[in-house]
């Protein structure tokens, strides 16, 4: 699971062009969206959907329903595990 989370962080940095960040800068449980987190927005949420599809083969049809999944690295990893 922790391996998956580290891998996810690298993929997030790559997919969203977060050039200035390293995986160590992203905490497992801190929110990815909004000002208190990484400050990601709705375009990034769509990029997460692309990420889940291209790296994990998981398809999400409704972007609105995906908000909870993309709350943090923890919640994303849980979701990916649940789909395995």
């Amino acid at each position: 699971m922790s391996e998956l989370k580290e891998q996810l962080k690298s993929q997030i940095i790559e997919q969203l062009n977060l050039e200035d960040l390293t995986p160590a800068d992203i905490k497992n449980d801190s929110p990815l969206f909004g000002d208190e987190g990484l400050g990601l927005d709705s375009i990034d949420a769509l990029e997460f959907i692309v990420l889940l599809d291209s790296f994990y083969g998981i398809k999400i049809e409704d972007p609105a329903a995906a908000r909870e999944i993309f709350h943090s690295v923890d919640s994303m990893a849980d979701f990916i595990e649940s789909k395995k």
Binding site: Q15, I43, L46, E47, I49, V50, D53, S54, K59
Partner: peptide, 11 residues
């Protein structure tokens, strides 16, 4: 391939 495409460049 497939239907899920990265939107940023389009935007």
């Amino acid at each position: 391939e497939g239907e899920i495409l990265s939107p940023t460049a389009f935007i």
